[in-house]
């Protein structure tokens, strides 16, 4: 995959919640067309990092430079900037009073001031691509979790952002719906879209990432190619973290799987199970032990 110029530079980023330091001087560069998967234990600051990139959290120090613009400038016009940075959340926050189509149209019409026909054409193209055009009239409560999350992705993508942020987008889904959402993201990766993905789906991370960023205690501990990171992590902390997922593998009865594809689906499902037990103790405590 050919990578373009640097699109996002994060320098020495610091973020505190009160006296608790969540990001302790984080530095990272992302090139255009790159897919970064960010993993790490709960409370390591990975979600906070994405929220800082979308201006949802004020930062206490450092710089974020996106396409030549300083996002850490307090006078930045966030409304304009957020159209260039798409974000999808864990809890598929669709607007419950609007249909799937109206959810997608809202930003196109109200933010980008496009005409109704133009906006409709864009919405149709995207909803069709994720297989939900025929559900356009449904309200969020009538859609499954996976469908809602696909609409949420489309809602962000329709604004043609230059970079997409995915914050644990499958963490709240039933296991059987994880795949349909991940497939959409894999397809976007094939398009050469720049993406930052926070996830607990290890098999997915392995498949989609150009680089894996492993975070712990507010810092980047490893930054490596996926095959390197998953086969041979450089640090003890990363090895311990990956072991959590291994551990759950060992205790499951191994089903004989013929095709590699079925094996992958199995992995997705199991890492999802592991994630759930992991999330159960999700709290503000920064350490995992």
């Amino acid at each position: 995959m050919s990578l373009g110029p640097d699109i996002l530079k994060i320098k020495d980023l610091k973020k505190n919640f009160g006296s608790l330091a969540v990001l302790k001087g984080l530095t990272l560069t992302v090139r255009q067309g790159e897919v970064l998967v960010i993993i790490g234990p709960s409370g390591c600051g990975k979600s906070t990092l994405l929220r800082c990139l979308n201006g949802l959290e004020p930062v206490q120090g450092g710089q974020i430079i996106f396409g030549g613009q300083y996002l850490t400038d307090p006078h930045i016009n966030w409304s304009r900037t957020r159209q260039r940075i798409g974000m999808v959340f864990q809890n598929y926050e669709l607007f419950p009073h609007l249909t799937a189509l109206d959810n997608v149209l809202l930003g196109l019409i109200r933010v980008q001031k496009r005409s109704k026909t133009e906006a409709l054409a864009i919405a149709e193209r995207w909803l069709t691509r994720v297989g939900l055009w025929d559900r356009r009239g449904s309200f969020p409560r009538q859609l499954s979790g996976g469908q809602k999350q696909r609409v949420a992705i489309v809602r962000a993508l329709a604004l043609e952002p230059e970079i997409m942020l995915f914050d644990e987008v499958t963490a709240s889904l039933d296991p059987e719906m994880v795949r349909e959402v991940l497939d959409v993201i894999v397809n976007l990766a094939k398009d050469g879209r720049t993406m930052l993905i926070v996830t607990h789906e290890m098999a997915f991370a392995k498949a989609v990432a150009d680089r894996v960023i492993f975070m712990d205690e507010g810092l980047i501990v490893e930054d490596a190619k996926p095959e390197v990171f998953f086969e041979n992590p450089a640090t003890e902390r990363a090895r311990r973290f990956l072991n959590i997922f291994q551990f759950s593998d060992i205790h499951k009865p191994q089903e004989p799987s013929a095709s590699p594809l079925a094996k992958e689906a199995q992995d997705v499902k199991e890492s999802n199970d592991a994630k759930e037990s992991n999330d159960a103790k999700d709290s503000k405590e920064p350490e995992l032990s």
Binding site: L56, W78, S79, R80, G86, M87, F89, A152, L159
Partner: peptide, 13 residues
């Protein structure tokens, strides 16, 4: 839900 506000802000409203 607070997340509704963040979702709205994140699409540039």
């Amino acid at each position: 839900n607070r997340n509704q506000v963040e979702s709205a802000l994140s699409i540039g409203l």
